[in-house]
Design a protein around this nucleic acid. Structure first.
Lengths: 358, 358
DNA sequence: TTGTAGGCGTTATCAG
DNA sequence: CTGATAACGCCTACAA
């Protein structure tokens, strides 16, 4: 029979949540024992274990994670910085992140940066104060030096969808140049020559690369790039609708449009509807980024379907590796390039048949 | 000239992050002073303030939020439990939540419960351990007793989109019965009598209410409800597509379909496309939940547009009230009912004209 | 105007 | 097999 511990007696104030000390007192053991029972971190006699569990139940004891975090300097949380969850590209990415994080016992703190470097910086600071264990980020384009600083300070970070010049960091993305090239080539193969592009004006490597893919595809086909067919618009549906409307007044009118992200693509579709133009009869359209019902409408939209979920997943797995691996063992930086799928649907004409619902 | 404090000297281990003690030593003041400088919590001479700031900069000091949280028992974080961020209804809700939370200095921890009571329970526990200050939840339907327990224990919670029987809690939602009634009545006004409904099988008050609205609308028009026209399907596009396909084989075939959420509605659209049925010529469709490009396609979809963003906003504002108000002053429970908008578009036929792009 | 010191609730290192 | 106790890093009376 163990003799009762002599620790400082503490009056548990009623109504307040019980602490480990309360449990220890009620079970007539030390806090050390309680802790070990809870964490299975050392042998405890069956009898004692019972008593502790009883006390825990009786007091409705709930461990205080904050204290644990303070001690262990680990929060089991990661920060997720994306531009805007309302942009249809991100929900699946976020889901991928959350699933992987959750599987590893981590929680995800979500922040919308709106492509704004200051907001991004702000959130980084807030979460750093909250001592998140790492970050998954879609970088806005600014804060390069700051990211570099964090990286050299050893903060685990991985990027998703985009990269930053001269920043060596784990990354998950697609080959935007190649995929855009494929999309535009598809239009060319359908006989289009007057191909316009809707450029979302973002400080994003992804968009730049897609534009490059557009250029290369035209070059490869010996089609000169017409400045009048390159429309730039802020990355939202309304702005894109306006710009697309302008684009459609060009003469000769383009016979096809390549949208560099889903927002500008949707803006295009709106403009077409408004001007009473039929797709693909009057103007064909290919978008970058797929969405669940791109295939459910007339015209079903041809798109470059990014593996959004997998992007989030991979970025997070890379982060988890860095998090769980022995510290300072210098895990090498890894950049993962995932494959996208060209979903060929009627919006380019259906000569090639439909292989939607893949 | 203040004499140097006598606190315990501490060797700052190189490479480790500096603590407040390090700053105090370097600035030759006490930790109390450092703390007050940082928080502006009491007067500090300009000179001292300078020294402290210099030290902070020199050491690249970053306050440890965990310690602060432990002391203050506040994390400035809230938990957000939704069923699935990949469901197009939620991104806007989440954005509303995050914007309001952020404006009040709170971070948002996002969790996907997948309509699964166990997952929901698990996340509640994890976040409770992490000592979040409150929750915004789209309840899965289970865990009723547990929510009640938390509520009586004083955990600040607000619900969004759905409610739970006999749980008194702050809530933001729309009047689903009424809105569904309006949508179905719209179909009736267009001359439809054989109106089917696609029911998403969820333990969700929202869905039940929408079905009730459907029933009432038919009743009010003296149209008997046909069991064969009530199709139930799991709440995802694929399952809905299958069920809708079955629905469309009913004879006589329904001339209109009411989708109780966006997933089943999209499934319907897929089924229509597959069976070569035209919308609205062959079958008219009205959905519940709008999305950004519902109006950009042919046929532009008529939908009940929920104010998703506002729902998230209001739910969070209610929570913030409870969080910031003086404790124990018993803020009364508030249930907010927001108005939805019936977006009338071609998918019901265009007799009434189009007022999309509202 | 500034310093001292106790405590928030755990975990982990010593001792038994 | 189990206790005592020192951290973890900060805030905040209480003193001076």
């Amino acid at each position: 029979m163990a003799k009762p511990p002599s620790g400082v007696r503490r009056q548990q104030k009623s109504g307040e949540t019980a602490t480990m000390i309360d449990v220890a007192q009620m079970a007539n053991v030390s806090t050390a024992t309680v802790s070990h029972v809870i964490n299975n971190s050392r042998y405890v006699s069956e009898e004692t274990r019972q008593k502790v569990h009883a006390a825990i139940a009786a007091l409705n004891y709930r461990g205080n994670g904050l204290a644990r975090m303070l001690r262990s300097n680990q929060t089991q949380s990661i920060g997720l910085l994306i531009s805007d969850i309302a942009n249809p590209f991100f929900p699946d990415v976020v889901r991928g992140v959350e699933d992987v994080a959750s599987a590893h016992g981590y929680s995800v703190i979500l922040c919308n940066t709106d492509e704004n470097a200051d907001k991004e910086r702000h959130y980084l600071d807030v979460l750093l104060d909250k001592r998140v264990d790492g970050f998954v980020v879609t970088p806005s384009g600014g804060n390069q030096e700051y990211f570099q600083e964090l990286l050299t300070a050893g903060v685990p970070i991985s990027f998703v969808d985009r990269w930053l010049p001269s920043i060596e960091v784990d990354t998950a993305m697609v080959n935007n140049v190649e995929e855009a090239h494929r999309a535009v080539t598809h239009l060319i193969d359908h006989g289009h020559r007057r191909i316009a592009v809707m450029v979302a004006s973002l400080q994003s490597s992804a968009i730049m690369e897609r534009v490059e893919g557009y250029h290369r595809a035209l070059d490869d086909a010996g089609i000169p790039v017409q400045p009048a067919y390159v429309a730039e618009s802020r990355s939202n549906i309304e702005a894109a609708r306006t710009q697309a409307a302008v684009l459609l007044t060009q003469r000769p009118r383009p016979t096809a449009i390549f949208g560099t992200n889903n927002l500008v693509t949707i803006g295009c579709m709106h403009a077409l509807v408004e001007q009473g133009l039929r797709c693909p009869e009057d103007v064909a359209v290919v978008g970058f980024d797929d969405f669940a019902w791109a295939g459910a409408f007339h015209p079903a939209l041809t798109t470059v379907a990014q593996p959004s979920y997998a992007l989030g997943q991979r970025a997070t797995e890379l982060l988890m590796q860095r998090l769980t691996h022995t510290p300072d063992t210098a895990v090498p930086v890894r950049k993962e390039v995932l494959r996208a799928t060209l979903m060929i649907r009627e919006s380019c004409g259906s000569e090639l048949g439909i292989r939607a619902f893949a």
